[in-house]
Nucleic acid binder design. Structure first.
Length: 460
DNA sequence: AGACATGATTATAG
DNA sequence: CTATAATCATGTCT
């Protein structure tokens, strides 16, 4: 009982000094209490009173210092302190159950990662342009300096600025508060037992509180970025058609490499430069073109012819010369690779009656279903020019062999789509599929390929 | 307004 | 990674 009383008293004192007022006698004016007072009790009462007045007053007051000093020098102080220590030891459950290192919150990690990825929390990138570029690259590499782009950039910068200022503010506040609390605790440790561990723990609690606030900040920043990003993506989706010139260049390349329309990286770069679009746009374009061409070859016939002619005109002489050379030199032309391809196409086209060429073929019937393209090719050449001119190739083509070759390949390619059999038979597929499979450097290559050529890929 | 053209994105496969 | 195929969303033409 006696002990209990002492504890109560002690606790009351501590509470008053440190935090809230509690305990039975704490609030009572010491002097209102008389009766059974012995000297000790009065002393304690005095101390308590002093403590109370301290808590009631601002600590800044110079007076407070004196009082504290007085308190510390009080003759009862060491005794009280040791009692407090003792009690603390006995009741030492306060520190229990504090899992100091809670594992990093996965959600927080995610937020951090995202902020980092978006260039919000990472190192400041000069002017934000790098960040924007990174964002653009990440999202597909649209490097066009469109309005949306700069808009995105500025908004992102804005977000980043806000984020950083807020973060700094929080950090500062956290530090200030932490030091304040630590000072307070240290100060109090003179009056009551406070282990460094407790201080540490307190700091930990403070940090946790602040980090939860930070998390909110991060979360809202993430949201802002997400919104911005989605808006940007939407904007990006607002496509613009390429310029006519660009389309022309791309088409030219496509049709002049019809048998293997897979521009190398270098070629893509070159095309991109020529068209003032990005490499990925070039890739997109070719991807779309290939699939759409393959899907409906008929639709592209005209276009194909047109470009074939065009290319042919430009490359005609050189090609003609080359072809002639090769012919004269060796009957087994070096072009066989290409021939093979075309021939495959021819097979499909056999049914097509749409083009003059096909007619020609059909006329000569069996001649082209042979594997031996070389022959076919030769015969075609001889047939060439005249009969061909007025043909469906609406363009006034004066081209020679070349054009013919182009047209052959083209016709071959899409004829089946037009023909009676709308779909391209497996055969056709194979032929086209040949695109990819047949990638043989045979290079295929279409007609123009040889000499004229854009096919700078390998060479370059 | 509707159909078609076209650049971009997504899902999937090798 | 690249390629294809399907699909989306917009641009453009009628």
């Amino acid at each position: 009982m006696d002990e209990q009383a002492r504890i109560m008293q002690a606790l009351g004192g501590v509470s008053l000094a440190g935090h809230s007022v509690q305990g039975g006698m704490g609030l009572q004016p010491p002097h209102g209490h008389d009766g059974t007072d012995d000297g000790r009790k009065q002393d304690i009462g005095d101390i308590l009173h002093q403590i109370m007045t301290i808590t009631d007053q601002s600590l800044d007051e110079a007076q407070a210092k004196n009082r504290k000093h007085g308190l510390n020098c009080h003759r009862m102080k060491p005794a009280l302190f040791s009692v407090l220590c003792e009690i603390k030891e006995k009741t030492g459950l306060s520190i229990r159950g504090s899992q100091e290192e809670d594992p990093p919150d996965p959600q927080l990690m995610r937020l951090d990662n995202m902020l980092l990825a978006e260039g919000v929390s990472g190192p400041e990138k000069g002017g934000g342009s790098a960040a924007a570029a990174a964002a653009a690259a990440a999202s597909g590499g649209a490097s066009d300096n469109s309005i949306e782009h700069s808009d995105y950039r500025s908004k992102l910068t804005q977000i980043r600025q806000i984020y950083h200022t807020e973060l700094e503010k929080y950090e500062q506040a956290c530090n200030e508060f932490t030091t304040h609390v630590m000072n307070l605790l240290r100060e109090q440790s003179r009056t009551r037992p406070i282990s460094p561990k407790e201080i540490e723990r307190m700091v930990g609690i403070i940090h946790r509180k602040f980090s939860s606030i930070q998390m909110q900040l991060k979360q809202s920043t993430c949201e802002a970025v997400m919104i911005l990003r989605s808006r940007f993506l939407d904007a990006r989706r607002k496509r613009r058609n390429f310029s006519k010139q660009a389309t022309e260049i791309l088409n030219e390349y496509f049709y002049s490499h019809l048998s293997n329309p897979y521009p190398s990286e270098e070629a893509k770069e070159e095309l991109a430069k020529k068209c003032s679009i990005t490499v990925s746009q070039v890739s997109n374009w070719f991807g779309n073109k290939r699939i759409r061409y393959k899907k409906n070859i008929g639709k592209f016939q005209e276009e194909a012819n047109l470009y074939a002619a065009k290319t042919a005109v430009t490359a005609a002489h050189a090609v003609a010369a080359a072809v002639q050379n090769s012919q004269t030199n060796s009957p087994t032309t070096p072009n066989s690779g290409f021939q093979m391809k075309d021939e495959e196409f021819q097979l499909d086209s056999a049914e097509s009656k749409n083009t003059l060429l096909t007619n020609m073929f059909t006329g000569s019937s069996g001649s082209f279903n042979l594997p031996n393209s070389g022959d076919m090719f030769l015969s075609m050449q001889s047939l060439n020019g005249d009969s061909y001119q007025g043909a469906q190739v609406g363009v006034n083509v004066q081209s020679q062999v070349d054009t013919l070759r182009h047209v052959i390949s083209q016709t071959a390619g899409y004829s089946e789509a037009l023909g009676g059999n709308t779909m391209y038979s497996p055969n056709g597929l194979n032929a086209n599929g040949g695109w990819h499979d047949a990638m043989t450097p045979s290079s295929v290559i279409s007609p123009t390929e040889g000499p004229g050529s854009v096919h700078s890929d390998t060479s370059n």
